[in-house]
Design a protein around this nucleic acid. Structure first.
Lengths: 208, 208
DNA sequence: TTTTCTCTATACTCACCGGTAACAACCTGT
DNA sequence: ACAGGTTGTTACCGGTGAGTATAGAGAAAA
């Protein structure tokens, strides 16, 4: 028996969990390199060195460099899709759901996997992954556009072109991933709240 | 004498002009590859083949692949800076100057060199070029932020955080370079006008 | 005419990096 | 004890692509 009452032999679950946590470590290390240097400029030897292992070790957990990138963007997109679906399903008028969606979207873009989505051009992936990547982005865009269209229909949003409005919103939010600096003055919440307010109310002053 | 009354021997100016036009051809061909595939995924042999020459020929006009990229982003940034400075110097209240700036900025982002700016991360360039690249972007951002601050001060824009507002605007506009499709339904002018209206007036409906 | 300069091609070097082969150490279950 | 799976290593392969050495053709200058 061990000091803490457990055996020194790890169970199958323990080993499986350890494997998962190592996979995880590869992903979080790699995504930071990708975000800092770009996919092509990142080499797996550097990632491996940072993890204090060698390159072939990484290949025990992923079958290719691209699979690592794809898993990163998949996670980022999953996070965005979650916030989009949650907001879409929430009650209230279109404007309220849009506000919630934008706020949470902005927060995701300040985190590693979210940043990776915005910084990864489709062309960076092979044909198969690119197809999936685009499909996921289309889904999210459809939800965003749908919520905006709902708001325009229920009178809570100014009438207009929902596609263009969605692209404007997506642009402002995705760009957060480019300029956000964790060491900067603005917290993710500051950014999210301020950006939502600006996009909803506009820049122009409307006081009489 | 030639049929058109000129000599078959080209003057020094003609030869110089020809050289410039060849340099130009390299740039416009390269920038399209960069925009379509990304800098690292573009190889100069493909660019050369498209121009019906070979790679060493390109090296008679540019000293490195990076110099080509830098010249592309330099042109894009120059175009943006021009519209920013013109708008800044124009008369009128902050809101009016901001509107003009945003509209012209959006138009630049639908063109090759403008797109290249938004699609090129700093990390893609070497230390020296990166320094210049960032400095130019900072200048433009300062103008944008300044115009917004002016508008907030003169009462034409809603009071708020000029930095955050500038980032929101820049994000929406820069993102145009990612999704704009020349073969799509929306013309650059449609996009520019619609986006300016959305950003200025906001998404929320404010009719009583 | 001869020399020189500009432009272009052929044919190459060389470094980098994604990916693999082979093997060793170590658990774990039989 | 032993077989088999997992995890890691060292040492390597092979493709790719930036950049270059060299030479030749043609125009321009001397």
């Amino acid at each position: 028996m061990n000091a803490d009452g457990s055996t020194p032999w790890r169970s199958a679950e323990d080993r499986d969990a350890e494997r998962q946590s190592k996979r995880e470590a590869v992903l979080t290390t790699a995504v930071r390199f990708f975000n800092a240097r770009g996919f092509h400029a990142t080499n797996l030897d550097d990632v491996a060195r940072r993890l204090k292992v060698t390159k072939p070790t990484i290949y025990h957990y992923f079958s290719s460099k691209e699979e690592i990138l794809f898993e990163c963007v998949r996670r980022g997109l999953a996070a965005i899709r979650d916030v989009a679906e949650t907001a879409q399903a929430a009650g209230g008028r279109g404007a309220d759901r849009l506000e919630a969606l934008m706020r949470e979207y902005a927060l995701v873009m300040t985190r590693d996997f979210g940043m990776c989505v915005s910084r990864t051009p489709d062309a960076q992936l092979g044909p198969e992954s690119r197809r999936k990547f685009r499909a996921l982005k289309r889904d999210i865009h459809a939800i965003l556009q749908g919520v905006i269209a709902d708001g325009m229909a229920d009178g809570s949003l100014r009438p207009g072109n929902p596609l263009l409005a969605a692209n404007t919103v997506a642009g402002a939010l995705n760009w957060v991933a480019i300029w956000y600096d964790p060491k900067g003055r603005m917290s993710p919440e500051d950014i999210a709240d301020g950006m939502v307010a600006t996009l909803m109310s506009g820049l122009k002053d409307t006081t009489p």
